[in-house]
Amino acid sequence: MHYTYQDIMELDRIDRLKIINSITGIKPANLIGTLDKDKTTNLAVFSSVIHLGSKPPLLGFIARPRSVDSGHTLRNIEEMRVYTINHIHPYFTKEAHYTSAKFNPSISEFDRCGFSEEYIEAFEAPFVKESVVKIGLRLKELIPIPLNGTTLVIGEIAHLVMPDTAMEYGDMDLEQLRSTGISGLNSYYELKKIAQYPYVRAEEVPDFDKIKISE
């Protein structure tokens, strides 16, 4: 199977969305929690959260074009300057997925989809109580992407909440935390740790044979 740019652009809209959203591989599954000035909360599923740096601790995610941002996540972040990112776990992937519905702005996805709000003192944005890993962020920068009307939202971590047992031998064990991943628009995956290697220094790289691909 070989698609050219023209082939991709001529695909049915949903087929194109599913293919292009899947070819990057498994992406982190998160719920982003926000609220507006009237204190109405909002919750939306995202698979575009990325690490941007650790000093300062920055995370980014891509917000859809404003014309289709029915969840009002971007608007709320602009207004309140705070938001949360919460890992999705296997026992609530269905509820998390349905936060993507186009609800009326007056309806909170927390209530409609069965989630509980949780708060940290002096931090207004709602966390997902059911999540094991929760991150509270303060907005640092919004970078418009003119090519497709999306926005890169950059936040600085103000709060990081996770179990005492989350770190194993200096690394976060996402399998033990049962964090999930997303492929495409609607497929959810559990993560399985398959290996752990040391920090790489050029002089310590082994001599490798050519990788053999099974027929």
Rank of each mutant, 00 (worst) to 15 (best):
48 S>G: 10
98 Y>H: 13
83 Y>A: 07
148 N>E: 05
210 K>S: 14
197 Y>S: 08
4 T>L: 12
84 T>N: 02
4 T>V: 01
43 L>E: 02
17 L>S: 10
191 L>R: 02
165 T>L: 09
82 V>F: 14
140 K>C: 10
52 L>F: 06
49 V>K: 02
140 K>N: 11
175 E>L: 03
146 P>G: 01
157 I>G: 06
43 L>F: 00
89 H>A: 07
22 S>H: 00
211 I>N: 04
73 T>C: 14
45 V>Y: 13
193 K>Q: 09
91 Y>F: 13
58 L>R: 09
148 N>V: 07
52 L>C: 05
84 T>K: 04
1 M>I: 14
108 S>T: 01
135 I>R: 00
46 F>M: 02
99 T>V: 03
144 P>E: 11
194 I>D: 09
49 V>Y: 05
82 V>Q: 13
32 I>L: 00
140 K>Y: 10
31 L>F: 03
196 Q>T: 14
182 I>N: 08
60 G>Y: 06
181 G>P: 07
63 A>T: 11
187 S>I: 11
53 G>K: 09
143 I>N: 12
74 L>M: 11
6 Q>C: 04
88 I>G: 05
100 S>C: 10
129 K>E: 11
165 T>M: 07
111 D>V: 13
28 P>G: 03
153 V>L: 01
186 N>H: 14
173 D>S: 06
145 I>F: 10
96 A>L: 09
77 I>V: 13
49 V>R: 03
46 F>V: 04
155 G>K: 02
187 S>D: 15
60 G>L: 09
83 Y>F: 15
88 I>N: 06
155 G>D: 05
194 I>H: 07
167 M>V: 15
13 R>N: 14
174 L>V: 13
94 K>E: 14
87 H>Y: 12
22 S>C: 05
178 R>W: 11
89 H>Q: 12
157 I>K: 04
122 A>I: 15
145 I>W: 10
25 G>E: 08
205 V>S: 02
160 L>D: 08
89 H>N: 05
91 Y>A: 11
22 S>Q: 00
154 I>W: 10
146 P>F: 01
144 P>Q: 01
46 F>N: 00
50 I>L: 08
43 L>S: 01
161 V>P: 13
201 R>I: 03
155 G>C: 03
49 V>T: 05
132 V>E: 11
33 G>F: 00
203 E>P: 08
66 R>F: 12
78 E>G: 09
208 F>W: 02
50 I>A: 05
77 I>K: 02
80 M>S: 02
110 F>L: 03
77 I>A: 03
74 L>H: 10
7 D>E: 02
124 E>A: 15
108 S>N: 09
210 K>R: 12
125 A>G: 12
102 K>T: 08
48 S>K: 01
55 K>C: 13
27 K>H: 04
90 P>C: 00
175 E>S: 07
89 H>D: 01
145 I>C: 04
32 I>F: 04
129 K>I: 06
190 E>S: 11
35 L>Q: 09
143 I>C: 11
150 T>D: 00
178 R>E: 15
100 S>I: 06
134 K>Y: 06
69 D>L: 06
148 N>L: 03
183 S>T: 13
21 N>E: 08
56 P>W: 01
99 T>Y: 00
34 T>C: 00
125 A>V: 06
180 T>Q: 09
56 P>S: 01
85 I>N: 01
210 K>E: 14
106 S>V: 12
206 P>R: 01
208 F>Y: 11
161 V>T: 11
110 F>N: 05
164 D>V: 11
